[in-house]
């Protein structure tokens, strides 16, 4: 090779390493910075304490409860719809206009920014359906938002089920539906679980769509009003304490907790994905 070609080669190689290093470096810097300042703020009282500024209480138990409520409700609504849609797309639908339109719908939903979801949830679920600022308004909004993730991931899982299983079951006289529920879905279970975990991550990380549907009341709701009260999720809490109250101790600690949760969810999703698609990983990446 000529000298110039060798030099270009070297420069490109250095750039590839350098830019990859920047990517990892930024992440590492951000994680280290936030965790090192946040970890000391995390204590038993912080996690299990109540939040009341007048009494000087800065615990995040209400936010943990609120986040769990929102996750749970969203998953309950979104998973059946998403899984059924994926079953339809992989097991029943013939490639045609209808499927094309549905794919277009999935892609569009994945591309809509979260603030638009927030506006929509505010005007439709909160105002038009009169659900108010509540877990229900938020869960309905977020379940639309996570549908693309669930449909995509479940579809992948269904497609990776060995066709021999289906044929064997059908040959034994099982109907199509029996085959789906007793043979295909059980083997696609790790994939569906991955979809659930990825949706959880999305709900935990969401703020713009949550703040104008769920609201930001930092109280544990009464037991008979779990779905009709406004709660505050951890992400919304981080936003509020950082920007409105300038309480950076709580903000760093909450940010640390959020990062730990996301890392754990990513780890779990990766573990599961390896079981249904050999060797590939799936974290909270883009859904397209």
């Amino acid at each position: 090779m000529s000298k110039r070609r060798k030099l270009t080669d070297l420069i490109l190689k250095v750039l590839i390493w350098l830019f990859s290093l920047i990517t990892v470096g930024f992440l590492a810097g951000m994680v280290i910075y936030i965790v090192s300042r946040g970890i000391s703020g995390i204590s038993w009282e912080f996690i299990t304490g109540n939040y009341n500024l007048y009494k000087g209480e800065t615990g995040i138990l209400p936010m943990i409860v609120g986040t769990l409520l929102l996750i749970f409700t969203t998953i309950i609504i979104a998973v059946p719809v998403g899984v059924f849609a994926a079953i339809y797309l992989t097991e029943y639908a013939k490639q045609g206009l209808f499927v094309k339109i549905i794919r277009f719908g999935t892609e569009s939903l994945a591309g809509i920014p979260s603030i638009i979801y927030g506006l929509f949830g505010y005007i439709f679920f909160k105002n038009t359906l009169n659900l108010g600022f509540s877990v229900m308004s938020g869960a309905l909004t977020l379940s639309i938002m996570v549908l693309p993730i669930i449909v995509r991931t479940t579809e992948e899982a269904l497609l990776s089920v060995d066709p021999g299983y289906r044929e064997g079951s059908l040959a034994l006289g099982a109907t199509r539906l029996q085959t789906i529920f007793k043979v295909v879905l059980p083997s696609a279970m790790p994939g569906i679980l991955t979809a659930v975990i990825l949706s959880m991550g999305r709900v935990i990380g969401e703020t713009a769509a949550v703040i104008y549907t769920v609201g930001s009341v930092a109280r544990i709701p009464a037991f008979d009003k779990l779905l009709t009260s406004s709660v505050r999720t951890l992400s919304v809490h981080l936003y509020m304490v950082a920007l409105e109250e300038a309480d950076f101790v709580s903000a760093f600690a909450t940010g640390t907790i959020l990062m730990i949760i996301i890392a754990a969810l990513n780890f779990a999703a990766n573990r599961l994905t390896r079981r249904f698609i050999n060797g590939r990983t799936k974290g909270l990446g883009p859904t397209i």
Binding site: V24, A28, G201, T207, L258, M259, I262, N270
Partner: peptide
């Protein structure tokens, strides 16, 4: 390592990015 980093970057909530930016 790199793949895990990218996945974590994708998963970190945008408020955390904002907070890092702010501080």
């Amino acid at each position: 390592l790199l793949k895990a980093a990218i996945e974590l970057l994708a998963g970190i909530p945008s408020v955390v990015y904002g907070f890092f930016g702010l501080t």
